[in-house]
Amino acid sequence: MPSSIRTNIVSGDRVILAPERARRPRDHKLVSPAAAQTAGSCPFCPSEPSRIPEPIRTRRSASYPNHEHAITVVPNLYPALTPDGDDLAMPHGPYDAFGGVGAHEVVIEAPEHIEHWTELDAAHIANIFETWQERVSDLRNDQRVKDIIPFKNVGPRSGATLAHAHSQIIALPQVSPRQLQLLERGQRYFELHHRCPLCDALHHERLSGERLILDDEHTVAWTPFASRAPFEVWIAPKTHGADFTRASRDQIQALAEHTLRILELWELAIGRVDHNLVLHSAPFAFADKAYYHWHLEMLPRLSTHGGFEWGSGAYINATASEVAARHLRELNS
């Protein structure tokens, strides 16, 4: 059965039905992370080149001068969406469904078997972010694609099934529900205040300092006022911009430095925790909007969602964002 996108007519929930994903390898369930380095089971390691598809893109890095392919982008062998399909409607009685056209790529982030960005330097992480920029710019040339989400899962509680450092990029034929939420709230706020809501949030956080963690010439890192989980962190550029692909090299380097430092502070505060990173950039049709501001969301997976979260769409967080920020600031100093 090919991939398809289904919508629940009662709730509006959207689901990508991707049968191929059931065949993914899961080395976290086979061996411990320490054993994975010597078990020879990692398909992303240089000793296993035949186990990955032909690269879409490779990139050199000064951090790995002896490796021509320091960063490698490949098609996902177990894709949620593929470019081979179409986005035609496939009605099933009263239900909405569309063909699962799109793209699903994997960014293999290092030529050696490392598992965490804290094992890399900021310059190499900046190269990874620049690779995201390049792939988003290229994928948007497909007229069927409307939205692209770069993201990173680390550890089994985050949804990761392979330990070798990697991220993913999924191109969608529809704007995702989370993006629609950001766009709709941003537009309503702008109509009322004639300002970008994230710009206002940055201004307030820098003035109050309560939830501020890192602040440099280009970028700010803070714990959101309504954090969904303990120690959640957002990072955004000071200069308004809706489109991540237009971020300057200085902004990308600052983003990499802040991301690495937050990961280091997390390790000091709560240990090497499973986590998700998600990059939110405006869908192409909204790339010039004054009410959308690109940003990186960093979510440690310290707890799992229960029935209340699933049923209400709200989150229960036992650690105030001000407390988390203060602790991270103290560790940073």
Rank of each mutant, 00 (worst) to 15 (best):
R144H: 00
P156R: 05
I262N: 09
A110M: 06
D27R: 11
T131Y: 13
W222S: 00
E115L: 13
K29Y: 14
P49A: 01
I5M: 05
Y291A: 06
H295M: 08
A165R: 10
W310D: 06
E232Q: 15
H92C: 14
H69G: 04
N317A: 07
T239C: 04
V15F: 06
E20V: 00
R185E: 08
Y95P: 01
A242V: 03
A314K: 10
T219G: 05
R188T: 10
A126Q: 06
Q251S: 05
R26K: 14
L277I: 12
P33E: 02
P150K: 09
I270C: 01
C199K: 04
S333F: 05
L299E: 06
F129C: 09
R144M: 01
Y64W: 03
A247I: 00
P173I: 01
K146P: 00
P173Y: 07
F286H: 14
F244R: 02
V15D: 10
Y292H: 06
E115V: 14
R59E: 07
L296Y: 05
Q187H: 13
P65Q: 07
S41M: 10
F284C: 07
P55W: 06
L30I: 14
R14Q: 10
F308A: 09
G209R: 05
L172A: 06
R185V: 10
P197M: 09
L172H: 14
G313M: 05
G271E: 03
V101G: 11
K238T: 01
R228L: 11
W234H: 10
H67N: 12
E109Y: 08
A285R: 06
A22N: 02
P43Q: 04
W117S: 10
A80R: 03
R249F: 07
V101H: 01
G306S: 10
S158M: 02
R272Q: 09
R144F: 01
R26T: 02
D142I: 15
E48F: 02
Y189S: 10
P19M: 00
R140L: 01
A160S: 04
A247F: 04
W294F: 08
H164E: 05
H193N: 15
N141D: 11
E210A: 09
G306D: 04
K29S: 13
A282N: 07
P2A: 04
D274L: 03
V10Y: 00
R135K: 08
V323H: 12
I16L: 01
S321G: 13
D86F: 11
T239A: 10
A318G: 06
A97Q: 13
K29E: 15
D13Q: 14
H258W: 07
R249I: 14
K289R: 11
R57W: 14
T245W: 13
D138T: 15
N153S: 07
T223V: 15
D121Y: 04
D243H: 02
Y315M: 13
G159N: 08
L214C: 00
S312W: 12
A285Q: 12
R57M: 14
N127Y: 07
P79W: 08
D138I: 03
D142F: 09
E20N: 04
S333T: 12
E330M: 10
H69N: 15
A122S: 15
P65K: 13
I71T: 11
R326K: 15
S4A: 09
E184S: 12
I252R: 02
T304V: 14
T58E: 05
A70L: 01
L17Y: 13
A160C: 06
L302P: 05
S63A: 15
P19L: 00
A62G: 15
P173M: 03
A126Y: 11
E119I: 00
